[in-house]
Amino acid sequence: MELFVFVVAAAMVLGGALGVVTRSNPVHAAMSLVLTLFGIAVMFVSHNAHFLAAVQVIVYAGAIVVLFLFVIMLLGVDKAEDLSVEPITNQRPLAAIIGVGISAIVIAAIVSSRAGLGASGEGVNETTFESPDANIRQLARVIFSDNVFAFELTSVLLLVAVIGTVVMARKTKSVGTGK
């Protein structure tokens, strides 16, 4: 069963990722990204990280990609990009080599070091009928005790990002009054 889930989710992830890279129309690319994100969310669920899966969908699919689409529609850049142009000579083959190389190195590292990984923590709580939100409670405890400083820091980061964007994107003069 888990194999089945894995295969389907992996197909979603990879198909979506290839779509992002190859589709010329930004809207199609964004929809492919959504596919990937859903695949990842499914994998989170199968790793018992229900909360992360939900947050992944809400934040990524519900906000980030919607923002992407909003910007695409607002700017009207939804015309298909011409993919046949290659701005730098041999850029594509080089990029492919680098990309595949990175993947290969990481895979090699994983395969060679997988035996060395052992259980080091106190365990991840499984979801059961008696305590359906065990995972969430555990996650919350760790975030708000050990990592509370990092948590506060990210909230400040978000605030700075929002204010910065508003300041940057605002128009200073209106139509008609001139400068």
Binding site: L14, A17, L94, A96, I98, I102, S103, I107
Partner: peptide, 12 residues
């Protein structure tokens, strides 16, 4: 790892 590789290629 594969996903990361695809992403890298895409950025480039």
């Amino acid at each position: 790892a594969v996903l990361f590789g695809i992403g890298t290629i895409g950025v480039m």
